[in-house]
């Protein structure tokens, strides 16, 4: 399991790095799908198989496909691909990378040390929580989805 964790982690970091430096939108989306699947592998290796499958099906399978639909619909063309290269000179990466590195160092310094015993917490345990203490959160999530649906319909129409 630990080998699975570390290999999934390495693939996720490399794929995410490739997403943010890409100039072609569709290539970046495919790398993002790869990153999400690698994170699903990480979820599986720390003992959360239910959300691993959910991440693969919902995040990589629905949300990223939605992205792809919209990008294909916009149909940007070669001019946009050349434009992307112009928008990314090498010096434009310097300040954001420094700021994010400072944040990363601060975050890293604050981690508590512990060993995670890998106990597999399956779908049944999650469902018992969802129908029990967190039933209100499920209802609120459905409100949020309804609000998102109505706004997306309203915003995207003529």
């Amino acid at each position: 399991m630990t080998e699975l964790f570390y290999s999934g982690a390495v693939v996720a970091v490399i794929a995410t790095l490739l997403v943010i430096v890409q100039t072609n939108v569709v290539h970046a989306l495919i790398y993002l799908v790869l990153s999400l699947l690698a994170v699903a592998v990480v979820f599986f290796s720390v003992g959360a198989p239910f959300v691993a499958i959910l991440e693969a099906i919902v995040y990589a399978g629905a949300i990223m496909v939605l992205f792809l639909f919209v990008v294909m619909m916009l149909n940007l063309g070669q001019r946009s691909r050349d434009q992307e290269k112009d928008w990314l000179p090498a010096r434009s990466w310097l300040v954001p990378s420094v700021l994010a590195a400072v944040l990363l160092m601060q975050l890293t310094a604050s981690f508590p040390a512990a060993q995670t015993q890998i106990v597999e917490v399956g779908a049944r345990a999650v469902s018992e929580l969802l129908f029990g203490p967190y039933v209100l959160a499920v209802e609120l999530a459905s409100f949020l989805l309804l609000a998102g649906l109505v706004s997306a319909y309203h915003i995207a129409k003529k």
Binding site: M1, T2, F5, Y6, A9, A12, V13, T16, L17, I20, S35, V39, V42, S45, V46, W93, P96, S97, L99, A100, A101, L103, L104, L107, T108, F111, P112, A113, A114, Q115, T116, Q117, I118
Partner: peptide
């Protein structure tokens, strides 16, 4: 088996900072 907790959080922090960049 066990995985060090800091490594999992470090992965999350790294991905977060890459997204921020």
């Amino acid at each position: 088996e066990s995985i060090p907790f800091e490594h999992g959080l470090m992965l999350a922090a790294t991905l977060f900072c890459l997204g921020l960049i």
